[in-house]
Amino acid sequence: MTVVEVHDLTVRYPRRGTLRRTQLTAVDAVSFTIEAGRTLGLAGESGSGKSSVARALMRVHDPAAGSVRVADREVTTLRGGALRKFRAHMQMVFQDPYDSLNPRLTVGDNVAEALTAAGIPRPAQVARTRELFERVGLPAAFTGRYPHQLSGGQRQRVSIARALAVGPQVLVCDEAVSALDVSVRAQILNLLKDLQEADGLAYLFISHDMSTLRFIADDVAIMYQGRIVELGTSAEVFANPRHPYTRALLAAIPQPGAGRRHRRGVVRGEAPPADAELTGCAFAPRCPLATEICRTERPPLEADAAGHRAACHHADQTEGSPA
């Protein structure tokens, strides 16, 4: 069952110039779907627009164009009370465990706030909060503590409990494990997997870390400069990356035991600033395969026989073969 359907989502931010007001396109016509019980991993480097996708989905920042349907309801047009009510369907886990909990409330009250939003009466909240704490692997006695008395991993568990409090169908995790120590990160990833299996939650899991995505995601979308450049099942994307950017990304990741002193940097340079005028393929300036067409014509996101999509004029052509 498809729970999330995003079509041509576009996000712009106003930029205050001295005289004229311009806009910065952070997300450019992005489309994807997420099924119940599955995880879509959204990968990309800084400035790729992956967090803007999350903020637009959550209606923290209103999208400029496109449609977002969650559980068969159009989200982008919801206003006021209807929007507040809808939020029970989709919740978010944030990146920074040191900032995502209100430091003036106990962690129990932090979770209880979500219950208040869902209209659960105060007396029932205490028991429900304790239940939620146990679900995310925290002792119920922790409810009376303040955020600064917990470790980063424990706080992230509280964040997850808070997100689960209203019984959502979709969980958006924006770099939810990036700030955690490696040994703690694995615990949280396991927890998220367990919760998904138990509740059939759909995850949009945003991360810059490809190895985390390989573990958690069923499908992977690679973003570059506000566009999805590759989209396919995790198995396909990691085993047979079709876009040169995906290949560069994977090659650049240092893996323990992969040997020393091999050349890691496959592509030169860095992503252009987000406000750069783009014609054609955004990756062309750095791409070893780029030809004339790449600089003039924007490649469409096209599927191969297996449904593995890539936006590249030279998809499947590898860097070794002649261009």
Binding site: M58, R59, V60, L83, R84, K85, F86, R87, A88, Q91, M92, F94, Q95, D96, D99, S100, L101, N102, P103, R104, L105, N110, E113, A114, T116, A117, A118, S159, R162, V166
Partner: peptide, 25 residues
């Protein structure tokens, strides 16, 4: 701050966000 954005995404009313999540700070 993330905890205020979180309060918004939870669906709390503006009044409650101002009272419980902004005012104490």
């Amino acid at each position: 701050r993330e905890f205020v954005v979180a309060a918004r995404t939870m669906g709390l009313s503006h009044w409650r966000i101002m009272r419980k999540h902004l005012f104490p700070h």
